[in-house]
């Protein structure tokens, strides 16, 4: 695109300002380090470097913590540490897939809805959001799991099809504000098409909302995954913190807490770090505070 060679001055976009602001937020940076650490673990598991033995029956029943089994073993002698680490990948996978797709769908539908607010297009989309929001979540998941014949992605589909409405409503509100601004009128005056205005002029100015919303959806998806797996509606052929907690419900009665604690602590750490990261991101990206 930039075929003409011109000495560029230092670019100071809103992004670089936001990045600078974030880098000075100590809580934000610490939480980011935690999140990145979890992400590395998830990558390691995905690439087959970590926790490959999560399903092997290795030791005896309910062994305590040792150098071989850091968190001990479960009822049938599997390594709890391996299982908890492996579950990190499951959580990340669900979180990323759901957050990315739900936010993208919400952004596009919310932008169209907001841009055409006051017309039948907006009415139809609002009605759709209202219908989806009014279905009880766990009933909806159960229905989808049943309809999708126990597919491992039933949980993802259910979360995406309900979580997008939150982002969509937020984006819609922002777009209604933005579409009256003069730079949008300028684009109309230039002759930019309606779709061009939505995708080139309006949506880029909602990215601060989308990024924050994606992190919130990410956390919500992880928490839902754990609960759904606990209820037997989530992960089918793999390991998840929710499944570990489900297993431990029998163990806790017998006074063995390792399984329960390992899953809860790891999940708590990730959710906490991600929430703090999300807050810091929100502060850094807020255009009223940036520019």
């Amino acid at each position: 695109m930039n075929t003409v060679a011109i000495t560029t001055v230092r670019r100071e976009s809103l992004w670089s300002k936001a990045f600078y602001k974030f880098s000075r937020d100590r809580t934000g940076m610490i939480s980011l380090v935690f999140v990145l650490f979890y992400m590395l673990i998830a990558f390691g598991v995905t690439l087959g470097w970590l926790a490959t033995d999560w399903s092997d029956v290795q030791g005896g029943k309910w062994e305590g913590m040792s150098t071989t089994y850091w968190f001990g073993t479960n009822m049938i002698g599997q390594d709890i540490f391996s299982r908890a680490i492996y579950s990190t990948k499951t959580a990340f996978e669900v979180g990323l897939v759901v957050a990315l797709i739900a936010t993208a769908v919400g952004a596009v539908i919310g932008a169209i809805s907001g841009f055409f607010s006051g017309t039948w297009i907006d009415e139809v989309l609002l009605w759709l959001m209202g219908v989806l929001d009014s279905i009880p979540f766990y009933l909806f998941v159960a229905a989808i799991v049943f309809a999708m014949q126990e597919s491992p992605y039933a949980m993802h589909v259910a979360m995406i099809s309900t979580f997008w409405t939150g982002s969509s409503r937020l984006v819609r509100g922002e777009v209604i504000k933005l579409r009256g601004l003069e730079y949008v009128e300028a684009a109309h005056a230039i002759g930019v098409s309606e779709l061009g205005i939505i995708f080139r002029h309006i949506l880029p100015n909602t990215t601060h909302i989308l990024l924050v919303q994606a992190t919130i959806t990410f956390v919500a998806a992880i928490k839902s995954e754990v609960i759904l797996s606990f209820l037997g509606l989530g992960v089918k052929d793999g390991m998840s913190w929710g499944l570990m907690i489900a297993e431990s419900s029998q163990e806790v009665m017998a006074g063995f807490f390792n399984n329960f604690l390992a899953a809860s602590v790891l999940m708590f750490g990730l959710v906490m770090a991600f929430n703090m990261f999300s807050d810091a991101l929100q502060d850094a990206l807020d255009p009223r505070k940036v520019s």
């Binding site: 670019r11 002759g191 100015n205």
Partner: peptide
């Protein structure tokens, strides 16, 4: 026919560079 706006803080999209803003009419047409 074109228009110049009152509020110079609202009339330029904050996420586009000066070159992108000025080039857009040429791109569109």
């Amino acid at each position: 026919m074109q228009i110049i706006f009152q509020d110079p803080f609202a009339s330029l999209s904050p996420r586009r560079t000066v070159a992108q803003i000025i080039r857009e009419p040429l791109d569109v047409h």
